[in-house]
Amino acid sequence: MGTRKRVVHGALDEHELAALGVSPGNLLDFSSNLNPFGPPAGVRAALAALDPAPYPDRSCVRLRQALAERHACEPEAILPGNGANELIHLVARALLHPGDTVLVIGPTYGEYAYASELMGAHVVAFQTQPERAFQPDGPALSALMHTLRPRLTWLCTPNNPTGVVLASAILQTLLAIAAGDGGYLILDRSYSDLQRTATAALSETSSPHLITLHSLTKSYALAGLRLGYLLASPELSARVGTFQPTWSVSSAAQAAGLAALSDPTFLASTRSPLWAASEMLSTGLAELGLPVWRAALPFVLVRTGDGAATRAALLGRGCVVRDCTSFGLPAWVRVAPRRPDENRRLLAAWKETR
């Protein structure tokens, strides 16, 4: 099948920085969609107390139980993973065969298509447009699903990079179409905790044709530990889990996840300052004369005309933003808010490029 080009991601790439002669310690990263007010204090305490010598609990029993309580489901419905990214690849391995058709609703995270292509699937993209507020044409999407009969339909809601949320009625329609054709709807809900106001999706274990992905790395700022989980019917969760390597979720990730989940105030107390930082950033960018798009998530899209050039110009001034060319949006960059003083540094650097 040959070597496939890896997916482009945000965050700092030390190989790239070394080639440019740039020290990562001198950069502010606005390309990663993380809660800048995390992680919770209890996470740091749990990691400090961790004995790294024993093997991790390969069944993640305590973590599964805590997540089951959070979602009011049975622990067998939950499969923790080494970040949602690992789970995307496990789903593709468990459910796809060479020649299957896969539908990806974009612009969105590149690993859905990449994981599917690695399994020999034929990937079809349904690309939403900024002129329609990045909202899909519901009848057109439904008609395409009826025509393609995809084995997997990948949908991120709230979406990365657009922040768009699809109404539960639309999701229910897509699930019904997928189930009717023997396929699966994969909902990536990794960013749902960062919404200003929670929105309903679907009952996460209600259908044997639905898989929901979640991440603790964004809302709790645990990206370096890699921790996500999926919810599905117990049978489907077990099917996906057979492809997961033993000890995939480290002791550190499990301890951090348990500490984060046991903190009842962290998300509520940081969501307000996070959105205040987003408001500050959006206003400042608009005052520079830049077209800004923001939906249900605190990060923003900024239309600069040349995302790659904008990223390079800001990188030279100590700030990293996400060039959206790999999303199919070459005129845009994505910017995640940080703390107010750091946002001011970005706005000052951006002003220098004007």
Rank of each mutant, 00 (worst) to 15 (best):
F266A: 00
N343D: 12
E86Q: 15
L27H: 03
Q195R: 15
G328Q: 09
R226N: 15
L301W: 10
A260K: 01
T246W: 12
L213Q: 05
D29E: 07
A49D: 14
T157H: 10
A66D: 05
L274E: 03
A198Q: 11
V320F: 06
V91D: 02
L96R: 01
T108I: 04
H71I: 01
H89V: 03
L95W: 04
A19V: 10
A68V: 13
R338P: 04
G228A: 06
R189A: 10
W332M: 12
P139C: 02
L236M: 11
S168E: 14
L346C: 09
S215I: 00
L230G: 04
F134M: 00
R345N: 08
T108V: 12
R62S: 11
L67M: 14
F30D: 01
T173D: 15
Y184M: 03
N33G: 00
A121C: 09
R239T: 15
W275G: 03
L301D: 10
P161F: 08
A260Q: 03
T246F: 07
S215D: 01
L144F: 06
R311A: 13
D193M: 10
S59E: 09
A77Q: 07
L95K: 00
V43T: 13
T246S: 13
A68K: 11
S31K: 00
G228M: 01
A308G: 08
G328W: 08
F327D: 09
S250T: 10
D13Q: 07
G182I: 02
P264W: 12
M1H: 13
C73L: 14
C319I: 02
L329C: 06
F266N: 04
A49Q: 15
S251V: 08
L63V: 05
R303C: 11
G328P: 10
